[in-house]
Nucleic acid binder design. Structure first.
Lengths: 238, 238
DNA sequence: AATCGAAGGATCGTTGAACAATTTGAATTT
DNA sequence: AAATTCAAATTGTTCAACGATCCTTCGATT
């Protein structure tokens, strides 16, 4: 269940290292952050499925870090709702139910529509366009994985138009939650393929400055997407 | 700077306590959570001002907990953006700048407007009304503190209309960030008083089902509020 | 005299071990 | 079959230690 993936060992102290004199150090992530990143990666990848229990000591050993550090990583992931902490019982990979999915879409409707209504710079819109084309290429190549990724890029680019670090961060978390759900639900191979025309239409509306139109297209898209996903859920899970 | 406020001591073990047989225990918050709550309280109250450094060992001693526990609490507060962690330098109370304020308002515009557009149940709207009246009473009583609180209740009730746990949580964090800023900026005693008519108008529009009108009133309110706050900032801080 | 660089001290980051409290599941009893 | 007891496993929390890093001070150099 746990592939042994100690990441790059943390420092052997060579005697005379000058610690990069200038003020511009690259801010090496702490061990706790790296553990969180590693777990996040496995969650996104589907190695860790919803409901899986994450035992502190096991993860500590597997990653070669102390329990306390794992704990800090858990706190981070819990704040992102990727894992759930049951007091005295342990940490479990979040298992989204129908209500969560609806809630996630409520958040997406709020911030994506708002971002579209506010419009964006030429570069922002170019990034949206790039995601649309990325999706088309993935569809032609028949790469479903890449298609899903492109779709997330599309919606990420939509939110990025607002130029808000906080909205970007929220969107990132929400997309991570959705990824979690996707691994649980078995869905059509071309689940995303249906949305390519929507993405194209929304992007076109943005490019021609029809913000209101883009917003209503997006809203309709999100509603439909939520419906489809709920159907999948009904079929795929108990 | 730190009032000694060890919270209720954590358990002396009496020999034969039966641990409340049933499954319905009240989920006592962990020590880390209580530390986070205590710090959050002091941040909201203004005891801890923006820029203040929070030293692990000091807080650990003051609250009578271990450094590791304080660390977990810091992680929680950092995820809420109430404190900022500078690697190897320490944890500081977040010090919002003009960009942060703008960003916070971007988030508020997104989620508050969206919530209003979606409308709410009779109870939801009644809660909004209650917050409006709470504000009126505070204004009459000349209680500025209560006025600010009522205003936050008003906007909290707006978002609560969406019935989304995630949006509520986001709004809670955003309001906490604003409170942080308010303690730093010295503003007119009746800063909020100007907004009472706006709140009333928005609430009235909601009650009569004019959702679009309520949404545009709210949007205008938020824009004006952001402007006012930016002015205060320009005057009050360097 | 101003600048640069080398000690010193303080604090953070992380570890490892320890122990109490709690949950869980199995064995035992009624 | 239901209830009770008991032991094992895991979490929650503390404590002590140590290297790494930052900040300050002090002294040497140009």
């Amino acid at each position: 269940m746990w592939r042994s993936c100690k990441f790059s060992g943390m420092t052997s102290s060579s005697p005379t290292v000058r610690p990069a004199p200038g003020r511009l150090r690259v801010a090496v992530p702490s061990v706790a952050e790296r553990v969180a990143a590693e777990l996040r990666r496995q969650l996104a990848e589907g190695t860790l499925l919803p409901g899986t229990r994450l035992t502190e000591s096991t993860i500590a050993e597997d990653l070669g870090v102390s329990r306390n550090t794992v704990r800090e990583a858990f706190a981070e992931l819990a704040s992102e709702r990727l894992v759930v902490r049951l007091p005295n019982r342990g940490v479990f990979v979040a298992n989204l139910d129908a209500g969560d999915i609806h809630d996630v879409y409520t958040v997406r409707r709020a911030i994506e529509v708002s971002a579209v209504r506010g419009g964006g710079s030429a570069e922002d819109i170019a990034a949206v366009r790039a995601a649309v084309e990325e999706g088309k290429r993935a569809a032609e190549a028949g790469d479903d994985e890449a298609l899903g990724t492109a779709n997330q890029h599309f919606h990420g680019a939509i939110v990025a138009m607002a130029g808000s670090p906080r909205l970007n961060s929220i969107m990132g978390q929400v997309l991570a939650e959705m990824r979690l759900y996707f691994h649980k639900a078995t869905m059509d191979a071309d689940f995303y393929r249906h949305y390519l025309p929507d993405n194209e239409a929304i992007c076109a509306a943005l490019e021609s400055g029809e913000l209101d139109r883009a917003a209503s297209l997006l809203l309709a898209y999100l509603d439909r997407s939520e419906d489809n996903l709920s159907d999948v859920h009904g079929a795929g899970a108990g």
